[in-house]
Computed example of a mutant assay.
Amino acid sequence: MNWISSVVRPKISSFWTKRDTPKNLWIKCPETGEMVFHRDLEQNGWVVPGSGFHMRMPLPDRLASIFDAGAYELLPLPTVPHDPLKFRDERRYQDRLRDARAKTGRDDAVTVARGTLETIPVTVAIQDFAFMGGSLGMAAGEAIVMGAQTALANKTPYILFAASGGARMQEGILSLMQMPRTTAALIALREAGLPYVVVLTNPTTGGVTASYAMLGDVHIAEPGALIGFAGPRVIEQTIREKLPEGFQRAEYLYDHGMVDMVVHRHEMKSTLGRLLRVLLHRPALAVGALPAPEAVPEPEAAPQKAAAEVASTTPETPDEETAPAVS
């Protein structure tokens, strides 16, 4: 083989070789069609710089944006039975769960953490829409209840970031059962005089909206978030009328008294800090002054049921890529 075939020909061929590029380098704004470089979007808190559209925020970024210095402790969550109904539609429920866990690296849709927010110890629960549409199943219900019990045991405010398509249909009545269970846990928190603040993100719908997402002492919504029980299309088809512009969006709900505030994501942490100081009767921070965080007390173990009791009272934890709401 001579130098033409061994050197020149490969060099020429390399010019025509198609190079693989990541598919997510540029992200399109759903509102304006603007293309944004993914690093710029990430640095801007997943808010499109031009339009201000709030994209869905990944769980690690959300946690880092809320806690002081991005430092927090993830709390272990109770385990529940898997696929208690042996459900199967186009695919087995167990397969959907396995895929969602592989995709997100988490066991289910709700994560609970503790730390400080502008020096105030808090307990935070976050629903991740990436895990089967943030659907509410047994595992998610247990996590929210455990978060409320942890806040109660440690006497901290409880903040919940809601993002869900509703109840998880693969768990049927066991999913719907989580609505009264979470409500009972939040009533105990209210009786203890501890603040419960809900941040409604896009979207918050179905059984989640019919339970813990609308039971907060204060309801904050991110701009443009879709909030409601049934979707706008279902409502239009039912009543056979055209809905108002912006129906079920955060700003529309604010104008009609359904939410207390619509807060830009960049202002979320400072707004939560001021709000908690008012609810806890603490003095406001001086402008530009952020004292050293208070020591976060070691959490007392939140009351957790024995495995046998959990298995008998709460069914299994579901997992999926999309989570249809159960009406």
Results as ranks from 00 to 15, higher is better:
206 G>W: 00
317 T>P: 05
206 G>N: 00
27 I>G: 04
282 R>I: 08
27 I>E: 08
146 M>N: 15
279 L>Q: 11
288 G>I: 11
323 A>L: 10
63 L>C: 04
151 A>W: 11
273 G>L: 03
99 D>T: 12
40 D>E: 06
214 M>G: 03
232 P>M: 01
222 E>K: 06
49 P>N: 07
263 V>H: 03
25 L>W: 14
71 A>I: 15
205 T>P: 00
239 I>G: 11
294 E>M: 01
286 A>H: 12
216 G>D: 01
186 L>E: 01
314 T>M: 09
84 P>W: 00
163 A>C: 15
157 P>I: 06
209 T>G: 01
251 E>W: 02
209 T>V: 08
220 I>V: 08
179 M>Y: 07
23 K>P: 04
24 N>R: 10
37 F>L: 13
236 E>Y: 00
202 N>D: 09
147 G>M: 07
118 E>A: 12
251 E>F: 03
165 G>E: 01
270 S>N: 11
272 L>P: 01
220 I>D: 02
134 G>C: 07
125 A>M: 07
115 G>L: 03
121 P>S: 00
226 L>D: 02
46 W>I: 06
290 L>M: 09
221 A>L: 01
230 A>V: 08
265 R>Q: 13
5 S>D: 12
224 G>H: 00
276 L>E: 08
103 K>H: 11
127 Q>Y: 13
290 L>I: 12
68 D>Y: 02
214 M>C: 03
141 G>K: 02
73 E>R: 15
301 A>K: 11
184 A>W: 11
110 V>A: 05
111 T>I: 03
80 V>K: 01
299 P>K: 01
162 A>Q: 12
299 P>T: 02
60 P>S: 11
256 H>C: 04
122 V>Q: 00
160 L>T: 15
275 L>V: 07
158 Y>M: 15
2 N>F: 04
159 I>Q: 08
119 T>Y: 01
183 T>C: 07
190 R>T: 06
91 R>V: 14
178 Q>G: 05
79 T>H: 13
4 I>D: 10
195 P>R: 04
104 T>K: 03
305 K>Q: 15
255 D>K: 12
187 I>T: 09
28 K>L: 12
170 Q>S: 14
290 L>K: 10
50 G>I: 11
111 T>L: 04
277 R>D: 03
168 R>I: 11
270 S>G: 07
75 L>I: 13
274 R>C: 14
105 G>D: 00
213 A>V: 02
146 M>K: 15
199 V>D: 07
88 R>L: 09
40 D>V: 05
14 S>P: 10
322 T>Q: 09
152 L>I: 13
176 L>N: 07
283 P>D: 05
246 G>S: 01
319 D>S: 12
2 N>L: 06
54 H>R: 13
31 E>Q: 13
245 E>C: 05
12 I>K: 07
221 A>Q: 01
33 G>F: 05
249 R>A: 01
77 L>W: 01
167 A>C: 11
38 H>T: 15
173 I>N: 10
113 A>S: 06
133 G>V: 00
298 E>H: 14
14 S>G: 10
163 A>Q: 14
274 R>T: 14
277 R>V: 07
308 A>I: 11
59 L>C: 12
254 Y>T: 08
275 L>W: 03
11 K>A: 14
25 L>P: 09
317 T>Q: 10
76 P>Q: 07
23 K>A: 13
16 W>Q: 14
317 T>Y: 07
71 A>D: 15
167 A>K: 04
191 E>H: 10
75 L>Y: 07
17 T>F: 06
